[in-house]
Each structure stands twice: as structure tokens, then as C-alpha cells.
């Protein structure tokens, strides 16, 4: 009945293949915890995903919620550290290696090559969010206006998120 061991092991393995972040391994988490172990139902999984999206914080939050649901606060701790521990140690080592030689020519080249990929992927995730979440014209306008405001001004984006929420709460956006 001890779920902490398998939970830690599953998360630790996913940690090292999650290139691109926690959202990449969500399908496999669903396969393991809903399908193989049967620790959560489909509806539980969908609810936890919705809450992780609605709450502020990094996407990896879904992992903590799954852990909480599976085994309480110990589960939340074990799942979070399982997902972030191995990749965190790797990141620590790479940070040390990366900055050992200072501003070397190869580091500058790699940086010039990876920087645009990073920006392209951020834009792609914005497009994915918009396509998944914007179900009507008003939602599309909110997305467009926010994008222009963020790109051209230094206004605190919390105001824009609040304005979007207000427009939605007034009933001008369909809830999906």
C-alpha cells in the first residue's frame, strides 16, 4: 500500500525526460497514475489540471497536486522533489560547467543558436494557449490587446489579467 516509493520513482524518471517542462510529460503521468496505478480517476486528473492552470505558479504545480491527491502532504513533497530533484541536480552541474570558462566563443555561438529557439517556443506556447482557451471573438480580442500592451508598454501585466477576468466575469466571454 506504500505509494510514496513508486510515486518518487515515476516522477524521478519523468524528471529526466521532461525536455520542455512539466507539461510535456502530462500525457505520461495520466497513463501511469490513472491507467497503470489507478490512484486517480479521469475526472480527478482533469480537475487537478484545471486547478494547476488557474492557480499562479509554474506549470510543474500539477505534479504537487497529483502527489497531494495520491498521498497527502508527504505525497506532494515526494512528487515535487521527485520531479524537480534529478533535473535540478543536472541543472546545477550544467550551470557550473557552463559558466566555468567565462564568456567563451563557443558559449556565445551556442547562445546565439538557442536564444531564437527559446523565443520561438515561447511564442508557440502563447499560440497554443490562445487556440485552446479562446472560444469566441471577445476572448481573441482580449488576447490581442494584451499581447500588444505587453509588447509595447511596461504596464504591469496583472492589470491586464485583471481586466481580462473582469470582462469574462461580466459574461462577455464564453466559459468554454
Amino acid at each position: 500500500m506504500n505509494r510514496l516509493g513508486p510515486l518518487a520513482l515515476s516522477m524521478a524518471l519523468l524528471s529526466l525526460v521532461a525536455v520542455g517542462g512539466a507539461n510535456v510529460v502530462i500525457p505520461d503521468m495520466h497513463r501511469q497514475f490513472v491507467g497503470v496505478y489507478g490512484w486517480l480517476g479521469d475526472a480527478d486528473f482533469a480537475r487537478l489540471f484545471a486547478i494547476a492552470q488557474a492557480a499562479p505558479g509554474p506549470n510543474v504545480l500539477i505534479v504537487s497536486l497529483i502527489g497531494w491527491h495520491v498521498a497527502g502532504w508527504r505525497g506532494a513533497l515526494v512528487a515535487t522533489l521527485g520531479m524537480c530533484g534529478p533535473s535540478g541536480v543536472l541543472c546545477y552541474v550544467m550551470t557550473r560547467v557552463w559558466h566555468r570558462g567565462g564568456e567563451t566563443w563557443w558559449r556565445r555561438r551556442v547562445q546565439q543558436a538557442l536564444g531564437p529557439i527559446t523565443v520561438g517556443l515561447i511564442a508557440a506556447s502563447g499560440l497554443t494557449l490562445a487556440e485552446a482557451g479562446d472560444h469566441d471573438l471577445v476572448a481573441g480580442v482580449i488576447t490581442a490587446v494584451t499581447a500588444v500592451m505587453v509588447a509595447t508598454t511596461r504596464v504591469n501585466p496583472l492589470w491586464l489579467l485583471g481586466a481580462g477576468g473582469l470582462v469574462g466575469a461580466l459574461g462577455w466571454v464564453s466559459g468554454g
Partner: peptide, 22 residues
């Protein structure tokens, strides 16, 4: 619907940030 409005704005925030970085 409020959350739908927030997530529409959040999508715009992500896109606008990419534009700013580019």
C-alpha cells in the same frame, strides 16, 4: 467565464513577451 477571460489575457501576455524578446 472570469477564468476564461484571465486565460485569454494570459495567452496575450505570453505572445507579447515573445515579441518583446524578439
Amino acid at each position: 467565464t472570469g477564468l476564461a477571460g484571465v486565460s485569454a489575457a494570459a495567452a496575450g501576455l505570453v505572445i507579447g513577451t515573445a515579441v518583446k524578446m524578439a
